[in-house]
Amino acid sequence: MPAAQADRDTAVCIRGLTFARGNRIIFDRVNMDIPRGRITAIMGPSGTGKTTLLKLIGGQLRPEAGRIDVDGVDVHALDRRGLFDLRKRMGMLFQSGALLTDLTVFDNVAFPLREHTSLPEPLVRQLVLLRLESVGLRSARKLMPSELSGGMARRVALARALVLDPEMILYDEPFTGQDPISMGVLVQLIRQVNEALGITSIVVSHDVPETLSIADYGYVIADGEVVGRGTPQQLQQSQSPWIRQFVQALPDGPVPFHYPGPDFAEELFDEYR
């Protein structure tokens, strides 16, 4: 494939990404390509740095080495203004929804419009109602975030993330802690948003069946590396012990059941020695 074509097809290009927290290495020379206009799943056990990866893509964290290009632009070479311009084209759905607790549902969704545009209030109202209608919460617009269930809060956050018509949306654990109905609604919404608007979607999750049911491509990360990549079918049929343990939810494997430590028998009889 010619380089220019590859650039057009790739929304996010990650090369040699290295990131550490203190002495703990979270990513060790990771390479990834996120295709444009598709849903890409990034999966892995808890604590592998999936949310950290989204924060690195959004420029909220700075890597020790490597680069992340979004639309061909090195995110970490941008100044604050450039970064904010990039983020206006990027929506992010936080795990908790992260709605502003002192604003109503309506004002939360209107917030990016009021901050970044000078649209007249009647137009803001129409745009907000359109977005709230698309997530099924138009009639909940007067509620405060504290009056919403977890699933509703995430749908409001999705409406807020979409209100500026972003080119890319980052989902941080969208299915965690949801009842089956809310989960089904969110799965459907993510698929619909991607199909209707052609937005590049990155879904970070450890809910394997739901994520693979909507993803076009997936990465599995563990132990600071990409341990598997491919289409959902390829991942499900993979013989890699990492992927098998993760996809089939096996309690023990490369990710051990026991926290690393000395031998149990040794520790039990230690005091008699």
Binding site: F84, S96, A98, E115
Partner: peptide
């Protein structure tokens, strides 16, 4: 509750 992060991500 990630509200400050959300503000940052909303530019």
């Amino acid at each position: 509750t990630e509200q400050l992060s959300a503000l940052e991500m909303m530019a």
